[in-house]
């Protein structure tokens, strides 16, 4: 099941973009669309870390 986590970045960056395409509100000093993209990048990193942890192939398994 852990593989399906990888779909989340695609949803964040492709499917949600039409709904966050706006300048306001500013979050962390950034236009909202840019904040959303930065958030997506950070979430992607966390998800890939999680997948790495859960994937037995990285711990000598199969």
């Amino acid at each position: 099941n852990f593989r399906w986590l990888a779909i989340i970045p695609f949803i964040f960056m492709l499917c949600v973009i039409p709904f966050v395409n706006r300048v306001t509100p500013y979050v962390l000093g950034m236009p909202f669309i840019l904040f959303w993209i930065v958030l997506s990048v950070v979430v992607t990193s966390i998800i890939m870390g999680l997948i790495y942890k859960l994937d037995p192939v990285n711990h000598g398994g199969d």
């Binding site: 695609f10 236009p31 840019l34 997948i51």
Partner: peptide, 19 residues
């Protein structure tokens, strides 16, 4: 302006595929 942000997205998705 805004369209520049695509540069941050495509690399990120490529890294997911790269795993």
């Amino acid at each position: 302006g805004g369209p520049t942000f695509y540069i941050l997205c495509y690399g990120t998705l490529a890294y997911v595929i790269s795993y």
